[in-house]
Structures are given as C-alpha cells and as structure tokens.
Design a protein around this nucleic acid. Structure first.
Lengths: 368, 368
DNA sequence: ATTAGCACTCTCGGCCATAGAGTGCTAACA
DNA sequence: TGTTAGCACTCTATGGCCGAGAGTGCTAAT
C-alpha cells in the first residue's frame, strides 16, 4: 500500500509472492525486530517478543520457507535470520501497516515552518533538518526548479567601483544573481550607462520585452534590443541556460551523522562511497526517472538501486512541487534496515507540506 | 614562520622551547613519517628512511628527550613515537619549511575559477571543493558577509496569484529574497497596489530613501514612508536583521569522505561528533575571535581547540574579504596528523584568491 | 499441522604462546 | 662527552585452541 509505482523496472517486484497468514506475521516480526535491534533474529527470541502462540519450531519452519522464497537470509548456519532486500520490499508493499503521520508530529513540523519568515533556501534547509531528525536518517532536499527556466524579472544594481550586479528572478520564483563581467561592464561604460538610473532603464527594457521567455527565445531577441540592453540580455540568456542545467548542485543534506551512528556503518568505509555519491550529481540523475513517474512516495531498497555504492542503503523520497512549473525532490537515506513505517509517512507529509508552501495553498491559518 | 597569531590564548605556545639541531631534525622526521604512514614511528625505521648518519640508539635518546619536553608521545611501552599536539605546534611554527603553493597548482586552481561565470554561491562551493581535493581533508567555506547588513536596493516582483517576491540587495553585494507574507499582501491589496507597476513605485520609494541604512535606521523611517511602503520597509528591516544574525547557517562543506578515509576515523564514532559540530553554529563562533586577529593563516591543533569534539582534529583556516565590508572564513579540517606543509599554503592561496574575486582586483587577465 | 527433542554447526570470547617491534639501559668507544 | 653496540625487557599483534551459547534442521511423536 505504500507505493504507487511498485511495478517499476528498478524497484523489484514482490507482487507475485503469496504468503500464508503465518509467513506474513513471521516476516513482519523479523523485519520489525531486526530494524530495532540490528541483530539477526532467531526463532526463540521471536516468539518471546511477539506473543505468537506457537512454538519456536513452528517459527523455524516458517522461516525456512521464507528463506526459500528469498525473503530472508542467513548470515551463517547458526545465526538468526535477516530480511533480504526482497523481504523488505514485500514488507513495505503489503505487510507494513502504514498510518498517516502522527497528529502531534504534524503539528510540530508545521509549527517549525510557521515559526519564522523564512526565505526559500531556508525552507529547504529546515525541511532537510526535520526529515533527518524525525527519521534518524540522512536527508536530502533539492530546490523546486522548473525544467525550463523562464524569465520573469531582472534588476541591475550598482555596487562599489565598477561592480554591477544582475539579479534575475525566474518564472518559478527562484532568484539568481551574478556579477556582470568585465566586457559587459566595458560595454555599458562605453555607452555611459553605468549609473543606477541608466541601469534601471536597461532593466526596464528587458522587463518589458522578456517576461515568460526561455533561454533560446531570449537569445533570438538580443539583436533587436540595441547594443546595451542586448549585451545584458546575453548575460540573462546565459543565466537562464545555467538554471536549466541544474537543480543538481544545490542539494541540502542533513543527518549524515545519524547514519554514521548505525552499527552497519561502524567501520566507516562503507559510508564513504555513499557520501561520495550523495555529493555528486549521479545520484540525482538516478532519481529523475522516478520524478516522471509522478506523485507519491517511492522506496528504493538496497540492490534495487542501480548505483553500486548504494547497495547497502535504502532511499525513501518523493517529488514535490508542480510538474510543469517547479519540481523538486525530498527524501531520506538510511541503512536498508531503516524504519520504513516511520520514514514513509514522514516523507509523504513533508512533500505535501512543501507543496503547500510552494503554492501558498494555505489560504487560512489552518493549522493541521 | 607559518603563523602570525601564535601567541594567542588558545593556540598553545611552543615558543619557549629550544631544541638542539639533532632534536629538531628528529622531531621533523617523526612528524613527517607519521603524517605519511599513520603508524607510530620507531628509531630504526627512522634512520632507514631519512638518511640520518647516526645510529638508532642516538635517535632513541633524542626521542626520549623530546618526549620529556612533551613533544612526542608513547602509545605504549614498546611502540614507536607519535607527535603530541605540542609537537605538531612546534613543527608548524618553526620546523616546517613552508613554501608558497606550487606554481602549477596555483594555475590549476585559478583556471577553475576562470573557467565559468559563476555566481557567488558557486564560488564558495568551488572553493570548498578545491580545498578539499587538494588537501585531502574536509573543507569549510563561509560566505563573506558584512557584520551589519546595509540596504542597497530592493525589488518587488509579481509572481503567480497573490504571490509577491521581495528581493533585497545588501551593501556587501549579497542578495536575499523572501516571499511577502499574507498580511503584507493584504495591506498592498487594500491599497490596490498588487500590480507590477504599483510594486515598482513602492520599490522606487524605498530605493530612494533607504540606501546605506542598517536595520534600526530603516525601522526608524518606517512611519514616514506611508502605509504601503512602510509595510514593505518593515519586511526589509526584518530581512536586514536576519542577515545580521547569520553568516552561520550558510556554510559550504566538502571532502568529509576524505576524512572518513583516514585510519584514525575508521571506527566512525569519533568523526560523528565532529560532523555534528561542523553542522552547528558553535564551531564558527569558535572561529570568530580569530577573525578579529586579522589576516593570515591560523592553525588550531587538537586540544588547542576549545570544543571537546574537536580534540582529535586540526583546523587550518584564514579569513578573507575586508573587515569593514564583507568578511568570511575558509579552511580545512583534518586529523591532527594532517599535512600542514600542504594545507597551510593552500589555504593561504585560496584566501588571497577569494580576496581578489571579492574585490574584483584582477583588472587585467593576469593569469598567475 | 504442530511440537518436543536432539544432534549439529557456527560464532564469539577468553586464554595462551609466540614473534616482532621497539624501548631503555649500560658499558665500551672515539 | 657524545655516540654506539649490545642486551634484557615490555608490550602488541597474531594465530591457534577450547568451551559456551545461540540457532538451526531434522525426525519422531502428538
């Protein structure tokens, strides 16, 4: 029930597997115990913890069946059972009872956003921080960006000396800035257009001509804008092109130390490669196909991930924003042995919350 | 010779210690070997590596003397010697032969900055990335910020629906943005001033009245600006106040996995607390006193750091920018066993480079 | 279908012995 | 007097060994 895209190429399907009542409850119990303790769980301790009214022998045979189905594994002959990636998958898809996020948690989260008037970057930072804290995992949040940046507004600002700043507001509400380069400055100087008043005139021209346009359209207009405005429009076009290419380098991360804490990453070498990937763009490209699969929370467990370095971790994340205007991703990264029943509702809630913030949907002060 | 602020309260002084020629070369050799191998270095292997034309017994006695002075330590009776924090300090201050950064490295770094037209945030990101890569440590870069944010320019932008964006350019060239809150929007709506033309008028008013002012001065002017402009000025004042309080939450970090790689952090628990500190503001407060001590590279080794979690790491960093207008910090964080002869020139070079970028000093295309 | 019983397997911790690295000391030496 | 060779000593690291404990899988009984 957790996932709407469960038949995808990369999220292995556990759809075909039919389990008996008993197998289901044993698998659930194993997953839950293992998530909690990080220790392979044996038949004896299982019946102790979960008041199953059967003997350990019965559980043992159920475990053997589950292992034959590829849902559990055996670290070694005389150890307890550990869920396999497929086991987690089945658990997430059909065993886990998923509830909406706790009312109290919802309020607490919402409260933090209401607390301060934040700029959009700080929303992202806050979202990352909340995700990390309330799932005890690492979190990742990307800004919501339009796939094709549109011009909305430009402003040119006089700074000290010969420095002039170009502030560009995009159609999705994001703001980019860049200092004008020397050759552009020279051009402006040649036309005697370095003073703030002159800059305002240039900006006004662009603001009249360019709104709604994407980079190539701006480029096509450059010739018609005259030498000065045209030169600035060139800069604007460059900025739009850059904005198109990205959404990647601006990733907000938090809670890495939460993951370091987990016993499976005690010998830090494993996490190292994961961090490496997190920092680089590869990993977001990995998420892109999922974005196209639309709304909802997506779960990628261990080896389901196409990136080798990510074979020991799971991702729970969701897109937010609106596909046509501005789209971002947020989610958490933890060991495969993470608490999916906790992570999934949290990610879902944060995604809807960010949706609201982005579209400013909360007309009234509805605090729930 | 490395440090201009070596007599500070927190950087323990090794100034009083006089060493014989032999002691000096032994200490240097121990530090250099240990930095390289991470293994306690014994008298025998020392004479082998560094063609010292003395016997191991001689080295042994020198080592014993250095240990008595508190410059070397003994993990246990029959292990080799390891430099103490004080040992590193002495090495850094007077033994290490410090050269400027390699010409080739300088060019490579400069080339990367010249490569693309970057926005200022991407400069910071790039600086962090370069620092991390070329010192194999974690790096930290904060944006250059004025301690008192000054108003320079504001722009109000119409977005979709009832969303209006306030873009504020500060005196130091930084740009902040914020979506106008509901009550401000209502106020504008009441005065029928939601259209872009009306917004431009409001912005023009503010741009005429506020340039150069800091937050409290803006507050004092609010009453005189009329209902609409006054309300926006209120928002501007808030934004200025926030900008005053910070410089902290915006920290660019890179290369954490470099540090994870080091054997001393193999069992990740140690690094965890360091990361925790890095993420939080405490650590920058720690650096603030150093900023006031002025230009130059500063080194804080292990226990010299007042933060407990940092007792196993060293910091090498430098301020950049101009004290009065915009000031930032950049540097690296690594195990105390880091290569100071590599880190110090690199940090120094990056600081001067960022200085140039910030003041746009490179008038010509001087590529060296 | 479930369970009790049992033999079997494997890990983990402790223990011991050994090898090796390195020290500190002392006595000889230049 | 500073340097060196030699030597006894100490401590770690490694590997082998053993026993305890946990857990399984199988079988026979219910």
């Amino acid at each position: 029930m957790a996932d709407e895209g469960n038949q995808s190429a990369q999220e292995a399907s556990a759809g075909r597997i039919r389990l008996t009542e008993r197998q289901q409850s044993v698998l659930s119990a194993v997953v839950e115990d293992y998530v909690l303790t990080a220790v392979p769980v044996g038949s004896k301790s299982l019946v102790d913890r979960h008041r199953l009214d059967v003997s350990s022998a019965t559980v043992r045979s159920a475990m053997a069946e589950l292992e034959a189905l590829g849902l559990l594994t055996h670290p070694h002959t005389s150890a307890g059972r550990v869920p396999s990636d497929l086991g987690y998958r089945l658990y997430v898809e059909s065993l886990m009872r998923e509830a909406a996020l706790d009312r109290v948690d919802q309020l607490m989260i919402r409260h933090q956003f209401a607390q301060v008037q934040l700029t959009s970057n700080e929303w992202l930072r806050l979202a990352a921080s909340i995700l990390a804290a309330s799932t005890s995992s690492a979190s990742v949040v990307t800004p919501a960006r339009s796939r094709r940046a549109k011009f909305s507004h430009v402003q040119l600002v006089e700074l000290a000396d010969r420095n002039r700043l170009c502030v560009l507001v995009l159609g999705d509400g994001n703001v980019n800035q860049r200092r004008l380069d020397r050759t552009t400055i020279d051009r402006l100087a040649a036309e005697n257009a370095l003073a703030q008043e002159d800059l305002d005139v240039v900006a006004a021209t662009l603001n009249a001509e360019l709104p709604g346009l994407v980079a190539p359209q701006v480029r096509r207009k450059i010739a018609r804008l005259g030498p000065v405005a045209g030169h600035v429009a060139e800069v604007v076009a460059q900025m739009l092109e850059e904005a198109d290419g990205v959404g990647i380098e601006e990733v907000f991360t938090d809670g890495i130390s939460n993951v370091l804490q987990q016993p499976e990453f005690a010998q830090s070498a494993k996490l190292r490669s994961v961090l490496e990937v997190l920092r680089r763009s590869d990993f977001l490209e990995q998420l892109l196909p999922v974005l196209s699969r639309g709304q909802g929370v997506h779960v990628i467990i261990g080896h389901e991930n196409s990136i080798d370095a990510m074979h020991e971790v799971s991702l729970v994340f969701a897109p937010y924003g609106e596909p046509d205007t501005a789209l971002g991703v947020l989610g958490v990264l933890g060991p495969t042995r993470m608490s999916y029943p906790r992570a999934i509702p949290t990610v879902r809630y944060l995604a809807t919350l960010m949706n609201e913030l982005i579209t400013e949907t909360h007309y009234g002060e509805t605090h729930d």
